[in-house]
Amino acid sequence: MKSTREYDNGQTKKRLKTKPVLIIMSILLVGNLLWFMAWLIPNNTSKVNDAEKVASIAGKIISKEQWMASMESIYGKEVLLDMVNAEVMEAAAKEYKIKVTDAEVDLELALIRSTQESASLQSYDEEVMRKEIRSRLILEKVLAKDIVIEDEAIKSFYDDNKNLYNTATSYRTSVIFISTEAEANEVVKELENGSSFEGLARERSADASSASLGGDIGYVSDGNDSVDAALVSAVQSTDTGKWSKTIALGDGRFAVAMVKSIFEGQSFSYEDVKDHIRRELALDQLPQSVTQEAFWKEFDADWVYSE
């Protein structure tokens, strides 16, 4: 059995630091898909043949039934796949007596928020994220359960990479990007007069990507090289639920930022993260990645898309 000292420490460090970003990118997609799932589930209080109108164009009606059928054809397979995988992992947890605590999920979330790349990741539902993290942790614990990693190796990695486990305070932020200072000042006045930040972002922000999400740009914190320093500074001095004054950005644009929530920075001790490190180093010993689908046969999983 190889010890941690024999690993390429640089590659392992990079994997541990960037893995949460890959997770969150997949979760963003999952979160959006799950939103549509609610519409794909039949409403038992409605009639089966109910042709409720959801839109009309030049007199032509689009029914709710047509709408749901279209969404199912586009998103149905992906949404059902996530649902099946989640249930398969719950069955695996029961079979192998695997437990995932809220503290473990909280740790993963904190590591995700602390990554520099997370600043460029946009809106997602945190509850969906927590469920996805739980499912992933079950999978990883099942895969790593028979791999032995010595405590000395784990402690050595922790001592060499403590910076990975000291997370900065992060701010869930929405931003309206504006081309001119005068227009940015107008946005501030509209907000003071009761206008919706989300609505103004969709209507007036010069950044199409965040505008479509009501201005949401994800988490901002010290060390986010992809976020303008002036924006970071403004966010740090803005209270939750409030917006900043006009911010002059380094690229010549202007912005108004709103802080949606604040997550205080944390310093995780060796005891806090030793199981996390043990699991990650154990997974490094696997010859290839394994997904939830590998457990379908064991737990008799089947679905309508089976060939």
Rank of each mutant, 00 (worst) to 15 (best):
Q236G: 12
Y158V: 05
E52I: 07
K155Y: 06
I112C: 04
T4W: 12
R5K: 13
H276R: 12
E104C: 06
L137W: 03
Q66T: 08
N32E: 07
I178T: 08
F197E: 06
E192F: 03
A69L: 02
S212R: 13
D125G: 10
N163G: 08
S26P: 00
M89I: 02
L81F: 07
S118G: 00
F268K: 11
G223E: 01
D216M: 03
Q66N: 14
K14F: 13
Q292P: 04
L191K: 10
T180F: 13
D125H: 10
K189E: 14
G199M: 13
D151K: 11
I27P: 00
L281M: 10
F254R: 05
G59W: 03
A294T: 06
K17P: 11
F299C: 04
D102S: 11
A86M: 08
D146M: 11
N85G: 05
L107E: 01
V187F: 09
S195D: 15
A93R: 02
V256I: 09
S244Y: 01
K53R: 14
S123G: 07
V273A: 06
L80W: 03
S46H: 13
K19W: 14
K99N: 07
V235A: 02
N193S: 14
I74M: 09
E126D: 14
Y158N: 01
I112H: 04
T291P: 05
K53P: 01
V175T: 13
I133E: 14
A93P: 00
L81Y: 12
K97S: 07
E87S: 00
S210R: 15
K245D: 10
T12C: 05
E127M: 10
K13E: 08
Y270M: 11
W39F: 11
K2T: 14
R130D: 10
F36D: 01
E186A: 13
T101D: 05
S3L: 07
S306Q: 11
L249S: 05
Q292E: 14
A301D: 02
V79L: 06
W296Y: 15
I149S: 01
S244T: 15
S226V: 06
D228T: 01
E6D: 14
V188E: 00
R113P: 01
I41V: 15
I112M: 15
E127S: 15
F295E: 07
S135F: 03
D302N: 09
I62S: 10
A294C: 11
V175W: 12
V100C: 04
R278Q: 11
K242H: 08
A234R: 02
K162Q: 15
L286D: 14
A301V: 03
D300K: 14
W35T: 06
T240D: 05
E117L: 12
D225K: 02
Y171I: 06
I147R: 03
A86L: 04
Y219Q: 04
E90N: 07
L40Y: 05
M1Q: 10
A208T: 09
D300F: 09
G265Y: 07
D251I: 02
S267Y: 10
W296M: 09
T180M: 12
M68V: 11
Y305A: 09
I178S: 08
K53M: 12
G59N: 03
G10I: 11
K145F: 04
E152C: 03
L143A: 08
V79R: 02
Y171D: 02
V21F: 07
L16G: 04
V88L: 06
S205V: 12
S289M: 12
E108R: 10
S267P: 01
T115V: 10
R279H: 10
S3P: 04
F268H: 14
